[in-house]
């Protein structure tokens, strides 16, 4: 098997389209009191994961971010996590 010049194999990356978790499962509720469901949407540092990475739709991302911010105020979620 010889490959001539200029016949480089092109790599093609396919990425599965991310779906909004809350649109797929309508029963999922966004609640600022529920830490366990919100924690998937923050980083280890406590930052809110942008929707281009998590795949949530605009509507639900808005609700999520306000829920996370509310949870931070009542100390259910951290504002920041220091890594030492």
């Amino acid at each position: 098997m010889r490959r001539g010049r200029g016949q480089k194999k092109k790599k093609t990356y396919y990425q599965k389209r991310k779906m909004c978790r809350f649109c797929v499962d309508k029963n999922l509720q966004i609640s600022y009191k529920d830490f366990n469901s919100l924690r998937y949407f923050i980083t280890e540092r406590g930052k809110i994961i942008p929707r281009r990475i998590s795949g949530t739709c605009a509507k639900h991302q808005r609700k999520l971010s306000s829920a996370i911010k509310r949870a931070r105020v009542i100390s259910i979620m951290p504002f920041s996590v220091s890594t030492s």
């Binding site: 009191k33 931070r72 009542i74 100390s75 259910i76 979620m77 951290p78 504002f79």
Partner: peptide, 16 residues
């Protein structure tokens, strides 16, 4: 347990 200290306390009693 609180996720950060409030008034130097690490625990709190929650009511809704």
């Amino acid at each position: 347990f609180l996720k950060y200290t409030i008034k130097k306390q690490t625990k709190g009693i929650y009511y809704f």
